[in-house]
Every structure is written in structure tokens, then in C-alpha cells.
Amino acid sequence: MSETIVAITGLRKVYGGKNPVTAVDGIDLRVPAGTIYGLLGPNGAGKTTTISIATTRAIPTAGSVRIAGVDVVAQPALARQSIGVVPQYNTLDRSCTVAENIYFHCRYFGMNKGEAEGRTARLLEQFRLSDRAKAYPQALSGGLAQRLQIARAIAHKPKVLFLDEPSAGLDPQSRIAMWDAVQALRGEGITVVLTTHYMEEADELCDRLAIIDHGKILIEDTPAALKASVGGDKIYDLRMRDADAREKLEERLRAVEGVTGVEAIPGGIRVLARAQDGLLARVVMTANECGLQDVTTTEPSLETVFIRMTGRELRE
């Protein structure tokens, strides 16, 4: 494995007050350099808090985060040199133009006038914002504002870019444009850590994923490995007419060659199976004798993984 760029160890964050809330409850994470790393979980799982701590905007109750070897709690100002952030909400400087948003960001990070101007022009070009350079952020659509936020966040060439719910509020077209932009960052050697509660986004974009719920990491792996952990290449959900026949059917289905798992679901049976010619027909024939009403076939998704880990759907 390549070097670790973000190292999170024993991270905890408890928000005080009358009813203390444990937002992050012991997270350990290693993000390899050069990857796109996703934190997948429902709203309120602790993803944003984890990112806030990693980007020096929240102080952890316990644990540490090191980015490129710099402790973000002990040396926040220096750690920020290695960090780019795109928060959930639009934080563009409304008193400055599109170009100035990038230009002054470059100046904050120590570039001189010429370097900052050059960098700004290149980024405007790269993110197709050149024709809006003199506009003010208020005049940008959601998708353009998001692109500008990403351009600004990487203007100082950070080692790690944090994207908090990057596709929240974007229309499908802007979302795909944003995915392309993020994937292009890989070529620039920027590691990306993003949070999302869209499993398609996690699946499409991320090299590795951590599934988070209630402030804890449930499982961490590549999307393919996570999906494989479900235990089959195909999922057949059988809806049965009567419940009595189910147990008997479960046994018979287990005996079918190619079936890797059988489990009860509300109103029927879920069959996990290898992708194999003729298998669906055999399953349907077997089930038909016990009152099959309907069958749906799917492939394991991250949603399936999440439901198996938590017993809940991702978007509850």
C-alpha cells in the first residue's frame, strides 16, 4: 500500500451542553495517498464532524488527525497548507469576483502577484469558468458555484482535498460534471476525501470507502470488496404467497447449485447467488412449487451492504 496521507486515530467528538451528543465515537482511518476516499453514511452519522476536525474547524474531544504528517490540532495554521476544503454550503466571497475568489486564495497561500494571476487563469480555464471571471458569486448557478469552490480549494495545490457532500443540491448534469472534475484531480496527485450519502456517488467515484453510522466506522474497503462481502453476484428477491412454505423452500433453495445464501426478508425470501447461466430459471422453478408471486433480480449495491450492517436503509 502507498503512503498514508491522512491518519485519523481514536477520534472522538462530544458536543457539550445539556444533552451531550457524541458525533464521532472512536474513528480510526488511514487514507492512502492518491486515492479518492469516501465516507458513506446517513445524515447525522458523524461524517461532517470528522471532516471539520480534519480541516481544523472543530476541536476533537479525543484522538488525533495527522495530514501529511502534521498534527491538525497542534499546528492548525501549518496543516491548512496541505488541506483544501469544499464545505457543504456555498462559502464563496461575495464581495469578490469569480477570478478574485481564486486570486486572493492564492495570495493567502503565499503566491506572488504573477504566480497567483497565472494560477487563477489556468484554474478558470480548467474548470470552464473563464467567461464568468468577472461575475460575482451571487450570479452563479449551483453547479458553477460548486466548480468554483473546488477550483478555489485546490488553488494552493493542497495534498488533500476534502469535499463535504459535494453533490448536495446539484442537478444530475452538474453532479456528473463535478464527478469528472474530481476524477481529474487524481491526475494532479491530489488525494480526495469526500462524504456522501449517495451510494451511487460512493460507488462511482471512490477507490476506497468507509461506511459510517452513529459516529463509528462499520466497515472499510474498496466498493467492489464491500459489495462482494454480501456473498453473491446476484440477488433474487422472491415474493411468496404464503409464509408457511418458506422454511421448506429455504432448504430446497440452499441445495440448488450456485446459490450462496438464502435469507428471509419481509414477505418472502432473498437468494444470493453466483452469476451463472440457467440459475435464475432453476430458482424460479423451485420457488414456483411453493407459491411464488413475483421475483426481482438485482446486483449487490452499497445500499445492500449498509442494510446488512445496520438493519436500516441509508436514506431513512
Binding site: Q81, N101, Y108, F109
Partner: peptide
Amino acid sequence: GITREIDDRVMCPLPI
């Protein structure tokens, strides 16, 4: 306020 536009300046390499 709602815009939180101070964020980018807070994120520059300088103690708060």
C-alpha cells in the same frame, strides 16, 4: 451569517 463566507479566510495558513 448564512453565507459563512469568512470560511475561506479562516482556512488560510494563519492562526485564527
